[in-house]
Simulated scan of single mutants.
Amino acid sequence: MGDNERVNTETVNQPPSLTIALLARVQEAIRASGGWLPFDRFMAMALYEPGLGYYANQTPKFGHLPQGEDGQGSDFVTAPELTPIFGHTLARQVGQALQDTGTDEVWEFGAGSGALALQILDALAATGQRPSRYTIVDLSGSLRERQAATLAAHTGVVAWADALPEALSGVVLGNEVLDAMPVQLLNRVEGQWFERGLALDADQCLQWAERRTDLRPPLDIEGPQDYLTEIHPQAEAFVRTLAERLQRGAAFFIDYGFPEAEYFHPQRHMGTLICHRGHKTDNEPLRDLGLKDITAHVNFTGVALAAQDAGMDVLGYTSQGRFLINCGLVDVAKDAGPRENAMMQKLLNEHEMGELFKVLAFAPPDSTADWTPMGFSAGDRTHRL
């Protein structure tokens, strides 16, 4: 370690698990990179290393119940798993976007269990609007198997892809996708900025280590306090690439996060990085490699600017609760029973998902001339980005 490097001497001993091999690969990567691995590279391995990373292995992930001793259960629940009302309502926006942009395909990134795709396809089929193709872009082979089983009724329509094509048209969806893209960690200590990464101690255990850096958050952080935060170059690069290749249609991203001024607020001095396992959260990403989700909240201003830089128009930005109400959730749920109504409230309530989750949409300029997405018809917050 050089003079411009800091080491947190707290080490993390990995417990025996099916992911011992993942730890070995991380250790190998640290050695190969000269003894220090930036956090975004570690996060990519922890989540997506083939066969071992959290989203690349066979452990259950999505559902209502936590993991049990038998290995069954799940780590977290997303809106489509809460209630089909979510997907049936979002389908109204998808249907409008397909019609008004003159496209006939849907692309979904990170489709999880396939629940959202099923809800949207069922709802569109019921109104005679089922697209000619529904393509899922997902890196997880184990999740693809589950998606295929879930979507068996739509076999002739659903397809899978490993990567973006050079050009595409249609409606693009991403529900809780951006938060799982690797982030870089920046730490201001006594006025100096460091990038946080990983090193190995004398026993080859993982430990935090930091290097001086010229990287900075997009906003100056007021005050002299120490300040840990994230920057999102990979998510912004993904959106920029998508925007460059989207020829016609619209893209809708739903995730938890904030506009830039809130994301880098002086009081948010510990950042937003968090881990999910067994429906509990922790702030220890170096433990239990491959057995927990690692996420960070989304900087929606950065995402919107990346889309604009690639020539897109921002169609709207608002809370999930407002978006779903604008899309007719109340009408969709009019015949719902008590349980579904209770789940619906989780989607809408400010202290649940209704305010923390936001919706951002963008489209090529020639796709926006004659229509406004129904989801932003009231309560649009684009001016806050």
Rank of each mutant, 00 (worst) to 15 (best):
K346T: 12
P338T: 09
Y317S: 03
G337K: 08
H351F: 00
T318D: 11
T318G: 15
D331C: 00
I325T: 12
K358G: 10
E355K: 11
C327R: 03
E340L: 12
A333V: 03
G316P: 06
A342D: 10
T318R: 04
L348T: 06
A336G: 05
K334R: 15
N326R: 09
L360V: 12
L356Y: 11
L315E: 05
V359K: 03
M343Q: 15
L347W: 10
E350I: 00
L315T: 05
D335S: 09
H351Y: 00
L347P: 06
K346E: 14
K358Q: 11
G321C: 11
M353V: 01
L348H: 06
G328V: 09
L315K: 09
D335L: 08
M353C: 02
M343V: 02
G337I: 08
L347D: 07
L324Y: 04
S319F: 08
V330T: 11
G321R: 08
L348E: 06
E340P: 00
Q320I: 04
Q345W: 07
L329D: 02
T318C: 15
Q320V: 06
G316R: 04
G354T: 07
A342V: 02
E352K: 00
F323M: 14
D335K: 09
G328W: 11
L347M: 13
L324K: 05
A336N: 05
P338N: 07
K358M: 09
A336M: 11
F323T: 05
T318N: 14
L356W: 13
K358Y: 12
V330G: 03
D335I: 01
E340G: 05
E352F: 00
V332L: 03
G321A: 13
K346A: 05
M344A: 14
M343T: 01
K334P: 01
G354Y: 04
K358C: 10
G354H: 03
L347Y: 10
L329N: 05
M353S: 01
G321Y: 00
L348R: 08
N341V: 02
A361L: 08
C327E: 11
G337M: 05
N326I: 10
R339F: 13
N349Y: 00
V359L: 06
N341Q: 15
G337S: 07
E340T: 09
F357P: 09
A333L: 03
G316T: 07
C327L: 15
G321N: 04
D335E: 12
P338D: 14
G328Y: 11
F357Y: 15
I325M: 09
T318A: 15
R322T: 15
G337V: 09
D331A: 13
G354C: 04
N349Q: 02
K334S: 13
G316N: 10
A336P: 03
D331H: 12
E340I: 06
E350V: 02
G316V: 04
H351E: 00
A342I: 05
L348G: 08
L329Y: 02
Y317E: 01
G321I: 06
A342S: 13
N341R: 14
N341S: 13
L356M: 14
A333F: 03
Q320D: 06
E355S: 13
A342Q: 13
F323V: 03
T318K: 04
L347V: 08
C327T: 14
K358E: 06
A336W: 11
L324S: 07
G337W: 03
K334C: 10
M353K: 00
N349F: 00
N326D: 11
G337L: 07
Q345Y: 08
G328F: 13
F323D: 01
L324P: 08
E352D: 06
A361E: 09
